[in-house]
Nucleic acid binder design. Structure first.
Lengths: 112, 112
DNA sequence: CAAACATACATAAATTTCTTATGTAGTGGA
DNA sequence: TCCACTACATAAGAAATTTATGTATGTTTG
């Protein structure tokens, strides 16, 4: 997960958002895309990704289609309507979080 | 920890930064101050706070002075030189994290 | 004046989320 | 033929936190 562990709790948000944008991706592709976009900073491990995808599917936020490409299996994931609602919620939470962190961490006027 | 769980992994940073600003605080005071600054959004639980303070002391990032106020014990924590270095590192990491999240989550031009 | 709430510390068990390690299997190049 | 890459998967362990308790004093309120 790169050099620092602040992404903890945000991997799901990143994956859902990516699937919302791209429409349809398979697991390995997600890891490569995230690595590319983050310029190598964020590497999602398989041990984190696959259980997460299964969980999101079980929750109805993603759907799967299995395809054979040549001789190899691929499981394509797409975001559902519920998944899109979840993305909206998570984005709002993230923005609130960033505001709060700036509020908490920027030196401020002495409070009573 | 409030309504969303994004603060996960940042509680230590928040506490160290607060002690750097304020100079000297005790546990309960930290929970109240954080709650006040965040307007009730961020509530640090005791089960998270006290073990964390003990750990930071063991790591040499904080020092403790126990005082009796009336009939009641208070343990005042202060940040050390090493603690201040840690704050600098953590602030840089947080800024890098926020930039990466904006990069990952803002709709962007289609990549190759 | 008793009960409820606030102050102030603390720890233990459970939960969530992740890393590390391992396994299977096909592909492709040096 | 070995190594790296693609592509899936699971299990054991680690870290940070929540939830649940526990102890004890202080203060407000009906």
């Amino acid at each position: 997960m790169g050099t620092n562990n602040l992404y903890k709790g945000n991997l799901t948000t990143i994956v859902l958002k990516l699937l919302e944008e791209k429409g349809r991706m398979y697991g390995y592709q997600i890891t490569q895309e995230v690595k590319a976009i983050s310029v190598g900073e964020l590497v999602i491990t398989e041990g984190a990704l696959y259980p997460m995808l299964h969980k999101l599917e079980a929750q109805g936020l993603l759907t799967v289609e299995t395809e054979m490409v040549g001789n190899r299996m691929r499981k394509y994931y797409s975001i559902t309507h519920d998944g899109k609602k979840e993305v909206v919620t998570r984005m709002e939470e993230l923005e609130a979080f960033i505001r709060q962190m700036q509020n908490l961490l920027n030196p401020r006027i002495e409070l009573a």
